[in-house]
């Protein structure tokens, strides 16, 4: 259900209709931005934004910090495992 894919906004194509061009790995498509713009974040602020694209609409602005945080949690989990393994190996556990 609900196929969505991250893409980057490269150009505003129609201000009145809130349309913009998105780039997904070199593939371009005009999409509707109505769901990701508001008074705090206007259409013209969207160039360079990463959004989640679903059926020709940007449905969410991707939160870069949160993405990094999710990866960091997993990174640290891995490091912790390594430490435990090292401790076991050296007979400390």
């Amino acid at each position: 259900m609900c196929l969505g894919i991250p893409g980057q906004i490269i150009e505003i194509t129609d201000e009145a209709r809130k349309l913009a061009m998105v780039d997904v790995s070199g593939v371009h498509r005009e999409i509707n931005m109505a769901c990701v713009v508001n008074d705090d974040h206007r259409l013209n602020d969207c160039i360079g934004d990463w959004v989640l694209v679903h059926v020709g609409f940007a449905m969410s602005r991707i939160n870069e910090e949160e993405a990094a945080l999710t990866l960091k949690v997993l990174e640290e989990l891995g490091e912790a495992q390594e430490e435990i393994a090292a401790m076991r190996a050296s007979g400390q556990m």
Binding site: G4, A34, C35, V36, V37, N38, S60, N63, A67, T70
Partner: peptide, 18 residues
């Protein structure tokens, strides 16, 4: 919420209004 980079806890107002 594991998908925090995309999903705000409050959802999307513009979308819900439409």
């Amino acid at each position: 919420n594991q998908y925090v980079r995309i999903v705000p806890d409050e959802g999307n107002d513009e979308a819900l209004n439409a």
